[in-house]
Design a protein around this nucleic acid. Structure first.
Length: 221
DNA sequence: TGATAGATCGGCT
DNA sequence: GCCGATCTATCAG
């Protein structure tokens, strides 16, 4: 820990207070390109075995149906059905034969839009996350969509979970990242529609995934 | 420190 | 069959 950093640690009570405010369904019932940047700084909470894991969202990506890179692009299938459901549901998919990623469904029913949760800053339950991730490096716990999903113990069984009402997984208001500290860039791992800058992350955050927006990468000591 | 290949399997062409 | 909203290990410099 660097003494010169002097991070402002909020009192326990204030953190709990912030964490208690669950985002309502209407928060998600907006265009994915609006919800995605608005999710930065929010708190992702997971109740697991009597413990509550907490992670602060620092990176997201927006997807829409008229988007060749979106799973919903080719219309509704059994796999992508949740994406076409009501806003606030969780869409979990399996990829590359070994990884799960999680999205929050946005917009209206039948719209097929969602926001991919790409990275977060672990706040509580680090031990539990570390065990599942198989590493003690805090930066490697949630800095990537599949990493975040594994750290939060989200799997296929969580597909379709309701973040607006369920008690296993939800998102609390936290503190929104100011617009001037939101960095925008092209999405990661996408071959199509690379010109669409729908990736959002907290500027300068050490918790974002690798493959940062090209251009500014201020050297780290 | 940075780039590259391999792992591994479900969904879609 | 092929490719993918990824991660990790390994190799080169």
């Amino acid at each position: 820990m660097a003494p010169d950093q002097a991070p402002e640690v909020p009192p326990e009570g204030s953190r709990l207070n912030i964490a208690a405010r669950r985002l309502p369904r209407r928060f998600y019932a907006r265009p994915s390109t609006v919800v995605a940047p608005d999710l930065l700084g929010r708190l992702l909470l997971r109740r697991l075995d009597g413990e509550t894991l907490v992670a602060r969202i620092v990176e997201t990506e927006a997807y829409q149906q008229d988007d060749p890179a979106s799973h919903s692009f080719r219309g509704r299938t059994e796999r992508t059905a949740v994406m076409f459901g009501p806003a606030g549901l969780l869409y979990v998919y399996f990829t590359y034969g070994m990884h799960f990623c999680m999205n929050v469904v946005t917009g209206g029913v039948g719209e097929g839009s969602a926001v991919l949760l790409r990275a977060a800053e672990p706040l509580d339950g680090l031990g539990s996350m570390a065990t599942r991730r198989g590493t003690n490096d805090a930066r490697l716990l949630c800095s990537g969509p599949a990493r975040l999903t594994e750290a939060m113990a989200v799997g296929r069984d969580m597909n379709g979970a309701d973040l607006a009402e369920g008690d296993e997984l939800w998102i609390a208001a936290g503190r929104r990242v100011p617009v001037d500290r939101v960095a925008v860039g092209p999405r990661v791992g996408i071959q199509l529609a690379v010109d669409v800058p729908w990736r959002f992350c907290e500027s300068g955050s050490p918790w974002v995934s690798r493959g940062r927006p090209a251009g500014r990468s201020r050297a780290s000591p």
